[in-house]
Amino acid sequence: MEIVRIDTLDDPRLADYAKLTDVALRRVTEPEGGLYIAESNTVIERAVAAGHVPRSILVQEKWVSSVLPLVAEHPGPVFVGPDALMEELTGFHMHRGALAAMHRPELPSVASVVEGARLVVVLEDIVDHTNVGAVFRSVAGLGADAVLVSPRCADPLYRRSVRVSMGTVLQVPWTRIGPWDTAAAELRALGFHLAAMALTDESVALDEFAAAVPERVALVMGTEGQGLSREAVVAADTVVRIPMHHGVDSLNVAAASAVGLWAVGHAQRA
């Protein structure tokens, strides 16, 4: 392991950590560069435990002794430097101790991700990384099996998604699906009943759906503003709504996923 103490930002290997607060930039540069950023000792530990390989580590001096054991088997450089220089590099104060530029694992096939699964979540075009991370945490905490994300859905491995998920993005199996004209047929061929969470005249209440729950269910959740696309609703086997009160029409997608997962998962296990 190479420990590099820095007093300038001239080392080109530090480029992985530049401008981490520029979301638009990172959406492009991280996937294209084959990396993602893991933030905090806990997330780095979970990433390594999941078999992900760090390209390098950026750590505050006071956290070196706690970070080194987590990456002891990996040869990448560990950059150590003053807080002010790290803030200049990343664009924020590193109060969580450490960052790791991790090699992004190759995405598995849909079939391999859902093998043996009874309950999965499909995220269509969710744009808020916080919501993506929160859904993953609900999936992990409520005992669902996997997450599938649409081509335009926010990156589950973006730093905020990973952090909000408490690192469960690194534990829950997930991959990307194709557009609905192929994805729906693929999921149905794998034995899944597609349940679209949406408000339509034909929708059934969640408790009604759970009362006769199918053996394998894919809960399809839509984007924050407009909800599910027409293509997703048309592709579904059942459209499901969460009954609401006091004039509220719907929940935030992260909250709705938790409610849906609890109801369907509980019914499947009953």
Rank of each mutant, 00 (worst) to 15 (best):
A100I: 04
V64L: 15
V113T: 08
T90A: 05
G91I: 11
A50C: 12
H103E: 15
R118D: 15
M102F: 03
H74D: 09
E32C: 00
A111V: 14
A134I: 11
G51Y: 10
E30I: 02
H74P: 01
S112K: 14
V43M: 05
G34T: 08
H129Y: 12
V132C: 03
F92V: 07
H93I: 06
L123G: 02
G76C: 13
A117K: 07
T130Y: 08
H103S: 11
P108Q: 06
G97H: 05
E115N: 15
A100V: 08
G133M: 11
N131Q: 03
L99H: 02
M86R: 04
P54V: 00
G33F: 01
D128N: 15
V113P: 02
R46P: 01
I126G: 03
P105L: 06
E106S: 15
V110M: 06
K62I: 01
E88R: 15
H93W: 07
L89A: 01
T130P: 04
G97T: 05
L68I: 12
P54Q: 00
D83N: 04
G51H: 06
S40D: 10
V132E: 05
Q60W: 00
W63P: 00
T130D: 13
Q60I: 09
Q60G: 14
L68F: 00
P31D: 04
H95P: 00
L99M: 07
W63C: 02
N41S: 09
G81M: 14
V127L: 13
V122F: 11
V48I: 11
I57S: 02
A47K: 02
V43Q: 02
S66H: 05
V64H: 04
V28H: 12
A101R: 07
V132T: 07
F79A: 01
L119P: 10
G91S: 06
G51Q: 13
M94C: 12
N41P: 02
P77H: 06
E73Y: 09
P82R: 10
N41E: 15
H103N: 12
E61R: 15
A100G: 10
D83C: 01
F79W: 04
S56A: 11
M94Q: 15
R104I: 05
G51W: 06
A98W: 03
A111Y: 12
V53N: 03
S40A: 09
E106K: 08
L119C: 13
P54C: 04
V53W: 00
H93D: 06
I57V: 13
V80H: 01
V28Y: 04
P105A: 05
S56T: 14
E106V: 12
L123F: 07
V80P: 03
I57E: 02
L58N: 11
V127D: 14
M102H: 06
S112F: 09
E61Q: 10
A98R: 02
E88V: 03
M102P: 03
H129D: 07
D83R: 11
E88M: 07
A117E: 06
A38W: 01
H52L: 11
G81Y: 00
A101I: 07
A84L: 07
L58G: 03
L89N: 07
E73L: 09
V53F: 03
A134Y: 09
